[in-house]
């Protein structure tokens, strides 16, 4: 019901929609994120910002999918938004103006994938540390790469 309404009322704000195991998925371009989310929040009660993450497709152009999940507390429904952004300019607008929880979650996506959230002025590392080079969840970051913040102790050659 509510899904039908969303696809009808907001049809000029997204490009494609489909169903994923009972959840509505909307695909859209970065510049439409803010108007769409604002309307979802205000008209359809999607007041809980659950999650943001990204998926990396190195072979594809544009390379990244930024994936949002929202929850509507009065409809008990979830919705997923997918935004494609290119490697050269991985920028989406921030949602910190609409949801406080976006602050932390965007920081994580920023450090893990290098997605920039335009307007979020606090994109310090959160799970990683200051000075970490690269974005570990990108597919081209090797899983066994090490960059310790404190040098490993050298093997002592003589004595115990």
């Amino acid at each position: 019901m509510i899904y039908q309404k969303i696809t009808n009322n907001l049809k000029d704000l997204f490009d494609r929609s489909h169903d994923s195991h009972g959840m509505l998925v909307l695909e859209l371009s970065p510049e439409k994120v803010l108007p769409l989310v604002t309307r979802l929040k205000e008209e359809f009660g999607f007041d809980l910002f659950l999650d943001v993450t990204a998926v990396d497709y190195p072979e594809r152009e544009p390379r990244f999918d930024v994936v949002y999940h929202f929850y509507s507390s009065n409809q008990n429904k979830r919705i997923r938004l997918k935004v494609q952004v290119p490697e050269t300019e991985p920028v989406v607008p921030t949602l910190t103006g609409l949801y406080g929880s976006a602050r932390y979650l965007e920081r994580e996506t920023h450090e893990m994938y290098g997605i920039r959230f335009n307007g979020n002025d606090d994109l310090r590392p959160i799970l990683l540390y200051e000075g970490f080079v690269g974005h570990p969840l990108r597919k081209d970051y090797p899983i066994d790469m090490e960059q310790p913040i404190v040098e490993y102790r050298k093997q002592v050659e003589s004595g115990i």
Binding site: L50, D56, V67, H69
Partner: peptide, 29 residues
Amino acid sequence: ELGFYLVSDGSGHPYKMHVRSPSFAHMGG
């Protein structure tokens, strides 16, 4: 809410796995 976002490409291991962990969101506020 503990959510698992899983993307599969049809192979034997996940293409992408993301955990929506409640504690992390709670620490944000």
